[in-house]
């Protein structure tokens, strides 16, 4: 019983990490129909940004948080303007290679700036782990959980209650039609990029105390976050949340009751299952054939 609870707590910690990364994927896909394979690298930028702003420059945590997320957003801005927009033939395969190229570039750049070693940051608040029925939960996990929920709620509000958000969704549904109604479609894509990448960087910031940060942390986190996004339904915000927690819990239960060697396989087996059985994901209604 105590063990089961501990597995679930571990699932929550990992699940929240996957969810917050999945959120960035889903958000961008929702607005632009694009999958950014460099998303994991923006997570890495956020984490390493926090290392610099918080532990090296000794700025207060909230300021460091905003600066790190802002840095991710700015990198996303540059990425969209310099790379994505200049593509003459925006076919998906071309965009995939460009984002893969960007991920290699960002990894290389981060290695030059922050070095090859991993960096640790302290928890946001120095509380002892919480003890519930013999199982323990890190306070940082609660921080992650809380911030993820705020992010989802914020995005939900943005899409459903603000004009800009609605315009962005209109672009996603039909860019040309949206443009005809006077929505600056290009600006919307740019904005979506900035929001998505700063979400990614914010994800890096909040998970940094748990995971430790190094220039090559992004790839696996990106892939797992991606599985979570697919699981919940690509493009669905609440789906990202559900997918993340489902993946996190199943992974820790899998380790607990089966074998730890196969832990990474769980994410990808789930990915295949959901693709074969219900490609639109748990929460999705989208047509799986759209490109």
């Amino acid at each position: 019983m105590e063990e089961l609870l501990q597995y679930l707590f571990s699932g929550i910690t990992n699940g929240a990490i996957y969810a917050v990364i999945a959120l960035g994927f889903s958000m961008l896909y929702n607005a632009t129909d694009l999958i950014n394979f460099a998303h994991g690298e923006f997570v890495m930028l956020g984490g390493l940004g926090l290392v610099t702003f918080w532990t090296v420059f000794n700025l207060p945590l909230p300021v460091a948080f905003i600066l790190a997320a802002g840095m991710g957003g700015f990198a996303g801005f540059l990425f969209e303007r310099l790379a994505i927009r200049t593509v003459s033939k925006p076919q998906p395969i071309v965009l995939v290679i460009i984002t893969v190229g960007a991920s290699i570039f960002l990894r290389g750049a981060a290695m030059l700036v922050w070095g090859k070693d991993a960096h640790g940051v302290p928890d946001f608040s120095s509380h002892e782990p919480i003890d519930i029925f013999g199982a323990t939960l890190l306070v940082q996990s609660l921080w992650i959980l809380g911030i993820v929920l705020i992010m989802v709620a914020g995005l939900h509000f943005f899409y459903n209650r603000t004009l800009t958000g609605k315009a962005m969704q209109a672009c996603a549904i039909n860019k040309r039609a949206a443009w005809l109604t006077g929505i600056p479609a290009n600006k919307m894509v740019l904005l979506a990029f900035i929001i998505s990448t700063s979400l990614g960087a914010a994800a890096g910031v909040i998970i940094a105390p748990v995971t430790m940060c190094s220039y090559d942390m992004g790839t696996m986190l990106g892939l797992k976050g991606f599985c979570a996004a697919m699981l919940g339904g690509l493009g669905s915000l609440w789906g990202a949340l559900i997918g993340g927690f489902l993946l996190g819990s199943l992974e820790s239960l899998g380790v607990g009751f089966f074998s730890s060697g196969l832990k990474d396989a769980i994410a990808f087996i789930l990915l295949l299952l959901i693709l074969y059985i219900r490609p639109q994901g748990i929460m999705g209604t989208a047509d799986s054939k759209r490109f």
Binding site: Q6, M217, V255, G256, D264
Partner: peptide
């Protein structure tokens, strides 16, 4: 895994 972020399930076992 080399990049895992939480090993509490293994340690619980």
């Amino acid at each position: 895994g080399a990049k895992d972020t939480d090993m509490t399930p293994q340690l619980t076992k």
